[in-house]
Amino acid sequence: MSESEILHLGSPLRQSGRLPAARWCPSPNFGPRPDENDISLLVVHNISLPPEQFGGPWIEDFFCNRLDVSAHPYFREIGGMTVSSHLLIRRDGELLQFVRFQDRAWHAGRSAFCGREECNDYAIGIELEGADEIPYTDAQYRQLAAVTRQIQFAWPAITEDRITGHSDIAPGRKTDPGPAFDWLYFRQLLAG
């Protein structure tokens, strides 16, 4: 094993599976990965509850199975779903973590990347509070870049070409993070 491999394996993030800067909101919606050392993909998503509305407790409640379905008509459609993500980045850059990185969050659904199916098995999912057609905030881009760098240090198999959108791993089924997501700007921040 090389010195750099030992360094990555000894990463505090890799050992704990949790970002110290994130507010911990444990979701029950996760399971074991087939191989917790096989983390090699990062998937960018978006979510807003109700759709195209920001703020409020609804995303956290949804990922933690405590969504009040009487609070909005749309919530009745999704009330029985059990989903999660590793991280959520709110509009102001606040960071929430729902699932440890070593665990399998339920964010990708039926999916494939480079011919390999079931992305949840080997991917980290990051949700941005947003919608396909609404521009994301600078605070979100900066937080996403900072978090991605930390994740890449801990799991170096997540190279730049292994960072993708939900729409790319589930085409025809998903559209997020949508055309409003500026991949070029994000990649510039990531490199800088």
Results as ranks from 00 to 15, higher is better:
Glu3Gln: 06
Ile6Thr: 13
Leu9Gly: 11
Arg18Ala: 07
Pro20Met: 02
Ala21Phe: 03
Gly31Cys: 14
Pro34Trp: 05
Asn37Trp: 04
Asn37Val: 09
Leu42Met: 15
Pro51Arg: 15
Gly56Lys: 05
Gly56Phe: 03
Ile59Tyr: 06
Ile59Arg: 04
Asp61Gly: 05
Phe63Glu: 02
Tyr74Gly: 05
Glu77Met: 12
Gly79Met: 15
Gly80Asp: 14
Ser85Asn: 12
Asp92Gln: 06
Phe98Thr: 01
Arg100Tyr: 11
Phe101Ile: 09
Gln102Asn: 08
Asp103Thr: 00
Asp103Gln: 07
Arg104Cys: 11
His107Phe: 07
Ala112Asp: 08
Cys114Val: 13
Cys119Thr: 03
Cys119Glu: 07
Asn120Pro: 01
Asn120Ala: 13
Asp121His: 02
Ile126Asp: 07
Glu129Val: 11
Pro135Tyr: 03
Ala139Arg: 05
Tyr141His: 12
Arg142Glu: 13
Gln143Gly: 00
Leu144Glu: 00
Leu144Ile: 09
Ala145Tyr: 00
Ala146Gly: 05
Gln150Phe: 01
Gln152Trp: 10
Pro156Tyr: 10
Ala157Pro: 04
Thr159Val: 06
Ile163Leu: 03
Ile163Tyr: 09
Ile169Phe: 10
Pro171Glu: 15
Arg173Pro: 07
Thr175Ile: 10
Asp176Ile: 10
Gly178Ile: 01
Ala180Cys: 11
Gln188Thr: 14
Leu189Phe: 02
